[in-house]
Design a protein around this nucleic acid. Structure first.
Length: 774
DNA sequence: GATACATGTCATTCC
DNA sequence: CCGGAATGACATGTA
């Protein structure tokens, strides 16, 4: 009981405080009532006959509510270790994540970007904040369909930000539900995972274990709160850029192209660009203007905005993905990319028809800023765990100069992009399937893999089973209802403590099973107690060995039937109180005054106690060892030797005593060892699940990145078409795509070169990566 | 009776 | 070197 209180006061309380510090609501009752047999056994251990006496005596004297001076070293050790693990695992915990999200929900309606928000809320927070920055929510919630993919998917925060900065009531409700689920998930999963191992356990252990389970399954659904929805509501606006025709080579400003890219940034949700683009288009030189002047045209638009950074960041991400996957450039399969399924909302708006009327009133600046600032969150893989830090740390990594895009927009990639080898003569065609590029292979593979990836992600990461299980649990047992479902145990855990002592004391007359008694007695399990203090208590109470009658009396005095009747579920709890009793005490106990007990019951009692005794106790009794096994085992060496010296013991007795001590120590060690082993297994299990979650998250990120990449590719393709289609030779005729191609040069210009030359360079570019890989 | 599980015990190693 | 913890292997009891 005192150990239990110790757990309550130290373990549970401390952890509760810890959680409170990080803003996690802790419903102690929920955890108390959660059951997890393995951990219960780990922490409490199996039968601990050695500490039974202490447990028993303490209850008798203090009724479990006094402050016991004894320091339980191992207890502290486990508690400290658990706490440490919990603290270490805080970053992985989903409960805090959920909680933070909930707070964000409550705080964010004003739309302010709260940089002080702790981790994990970021996806929601940053997205909403950005949303506010970017202006009114115009996002098309096309990804409502994607939500089925999994809400878990969005927990990475790397996906597109949520469209809406203002949460609707449904959103809040959903968040609230998810939050509750997270809180409960721990217990729920514990039960799920270990229910097969559950069996009759003593209530104290349940209480203690329940308090300690919270770190095992903190719950993971919360991440899904940040429902970052990839929205591509853009309209595929066009832009007026006319490049002066050259002879064979026509230089285009790189910034022009980049601007075009930005204007059609696939991630931007700003479908409409309210402002005008006239300023830009007016700045664009006429056809007769020399190419060199055009390099500066776009820079004013780019400076002062984050869009180039974002864009570059995106490209870096995309390229890293390409490298990571080591995908072969496959120009022959690019059709898949362009033949996106009609149902795919992401691919619908990106075919930019060159003939599309140019909207002269589109503010390119605003468009790029709005779209890409949101994109930033989309490409922040750290958002999930480092909300504030990510936004602050990632930015500095990005060159503050728009020209740095050259490094990312390397000639390699762009050259390939701008080199559709099979470009046919119809320059006015929308980005056709016949336009391959280096990204084609990647994207094709990505698209092909997407389904399987999603399956994988769902299968390995989010655990649809888990989700459904959650649903079921919370349908029938929603929220913190574990409390009620396990109320008996929770009741017994605290209130039953005193009565349990009485029931234990009455074990001699009750038909308590040995297993139950042992399980109950393992309270304060072996190795958890301080020997000296235990000894003091024992001696102070005179319960063991020398004053058996008193001990017996104490026990009998607790045989209050009313208490048992009040707590009928404790009746089965029995305890082995004989283990720590000296043989003499046992003898006396076994022979109560004839007047009090009938002979038959007395014999039964004796038999029962005999059965309760361990072999070593029997041996000790047989050898007339004058002190208790408990002392033999738990006394420090010095006191132990001192004790031995006090008595004239035969060699056989001494040998037996030493054997008893050795076996007792080893028994405790074995129990601790088994607990540790189980603990290790459970930790490994948790680690595996964490890794699986990470894997699933990464897969989801991959899918999202590939999706974004595909969109970018489509944009680039459209832009290529657009630019190329507007090129005119000196006679005002369009260039034939079969004869000419655009190539991005290293100096930032885009050149119009003959296709033969372009093909050669493209081939060269293809070889390079392969060689590098070798 | 076979089996799984919990627990105790022994031997050994390590600190 | 001793005491004791840790642990694998085995024994035993129980359901």
């Amino acid at each position: 009981m005192l150990s239990l209180k110790k757990y309550l006061t130290e373990g549970l309380l401390q952890f509760t405080i810890l959680l409170s510090l990080i803003g996690v609501r802790v419903d102690v009752d929920t955890y108390l009532t959660s059951q997890l047999p393995p951990l219960r056994e780990i922490i409490l251990g199996p039968s601990s006959a050695y500490t039974q006496t202490q447990f028993h005596n303490l209850r008798n004297t203090l009724d479990g509510y006094g402050i016991h001076p004894k320091s339980i070293d191992l207890d502290n050790y486990f508690t400290a270790r658990r706490l440490l693990n919990q603290v270490r695992a805080l970053d992985r915990f989903q409960v805090p994540t959920t909680e933070v999200n909930a707070w964000l929900v409550h705080r964010d309606p004003e739309g302010s970007v709260s940089g002080s928000q702790p981790s994990s809320g970021l996806a929601l927070e940053s997205s909403s904040g950005l949303q506010d920055v970017t202006g009114p929510d115009n996002g098309v919630r096309e990804s409502e369909t994607e939500q089925g993919f999994s809400e878990d998917l969005e927990d990475l925060g790397a996906v597109a930000p949520p469209v809406s900065g203002d949460l609707t009531k449904e959103d809040i409700d959903l968040i609230d539900i998810l939050w509750r689920q997270d809180i409960d998930l721990g217990a729920g999963r514990e039960i799920f995972d270990y229910s097969h191992r559950q069996k009759e356990q003593d209530v104290d252990k349940e209480l203690r274990d329940g308090a300690e389970q919270e770190d095992t399954w903190p719950g993971e659904g919360a991440e899904a709160l940040a429902r970052n929805l990839l929205v591509d509501g853009e309209t595929g606006e066009s832009f007026p850029v006319q490049v002066p025709g050259g002879e064979d080579q026509t230089a285009l400003s790189l910034e022009e192209c980049l601007r075009l890219l930005e204007a059609t940034c696939p991630f931007g949700e700003n479908a409409e660009f309210p402002a005008d683009i006239s300023s830009i288009t007016e700045a664009v030189p006429s056809e007769s203007e020399p190419p060199g002047l055009q390099n500066n045209l776009l820079s004013p638009l780019l400076t002062g905005t984050e869009s180039p950074f974002d864009l570059e960041q995106q490209w870096q991400d995309l390229m890293s993905i390409m490298e990571m996957q080591a995908m072969e450039v496959n120009t022959s399969t690019s059709e898949v990319l362009y033949n996106a399924p009609p149902g795919d909302p992401l691919s619908t708006n990106y075919s930019l028809a060159p003939n599309t009327p140019i909207n002269q009133n589109v503010s390119l600046h605003q468009a790029s800023l709005g779209g890409c600032s949101q994109d930033f969150s989309l490409f922040s893989p750290e958002v999930e765990s480092l909300p504030v830090a990510s936004s602050s740390t990632l930015l500095p990594l990005v060159p503050s100069n728009s020209t740095s895009l050259n490094s990312t927009f390397g000639s390699t990639n762009l050259a390939g992009l701008f080199f559709p080898p099979q470009l046919n003569g119809t320059a006015n065609d929308t980005a056709g399937p016949e336009l391959p590029d280096p990204l084609g292979g990647l994207l094709d593979e990505a698209m092909l893999d997407e389904i399987s990836l999603m399956d994988l992600a769902i299968e390995e990461g989010f655990n649809p089973v888990q989700a459904s299980q959650l649903e079921e649990e919370f349908d029938s047992d929603s929220g913190l209802s574990l409390d009620s479902s396990h109320s008996p145990s929770s009741l017994s855990s605290s209130e039953g403590s005193s009565s349990s002592s009485s029931s234990s004391s009455s074990s001699s007359s009750s038909s308590a099973s040995s297993s139950a008694s042992s399980s109950f007695s393992e309270e304060g399990a072996v190795g958890y107690s301080s020997d000296s203090e235990t000894l003091d208590l024992e001696e102070a109470e005179g319960a063991v060995g020398y004053q058996p009658e008193y001990s017996k009396f104490c026990r009998m005095s607790y045989q209050d039937p009313s208490q048992l009747s009040c707590l009928p579920y404790l009746e089965h709890v029995g305890h082995n109180h004989t283990y720590n009793m000296a043989p003499s005490a046992l003898d006396s106990a076994d022979l109560p005054p004839p007047s009090t007990l009938k002979k038959g019951s007395k014999e039964k009692q004796a038999d029962f106690l005999d059965k309760q005794m361990s072999r070593d106790e029997h041996r000790a009794r047989a050898m007339k060892i004058p002190f208790t096994n408990d002392k033999i085992i738990n006394l420090p060496v010095e006191e132990f030797n001192e004790l031995l010296s006090k008595y004239q013991l035969s060699e056989a007795q001494l040998s037996l005593i030493r054997d008893i001590r050795r076996r007792g120590k080893n028994k405790m060690a074995a129990q601790n060892c088994r607990k540790r082993k189980l603990d290790t297994i459970l930790n490994l299990e948790r680690d595996v699940e964490d890794l699986q979650r990470d894997k699933a998250r990464l897969l989801r990120e991959k899918v999202e990145f590939l999706r974004s990449l595909r969109q970018m590719k489509q944009k680039v393709q459209s832009l290529y078409q657009e630019v190329f289609g507007r090129l005119r030779d000196e006679n005002g005729r369009p260039y034939s795509p079969s004869q000419y191609a655009l190539q991005y040069a290293g100096d930032g210009s885009v050149l119009l070169i003959p296709r033969t030359l372009a093909d050669q360079q493209a081939r060269r570019q293809e070889r390079k990566p392969k060689d590098r890989r070798k």
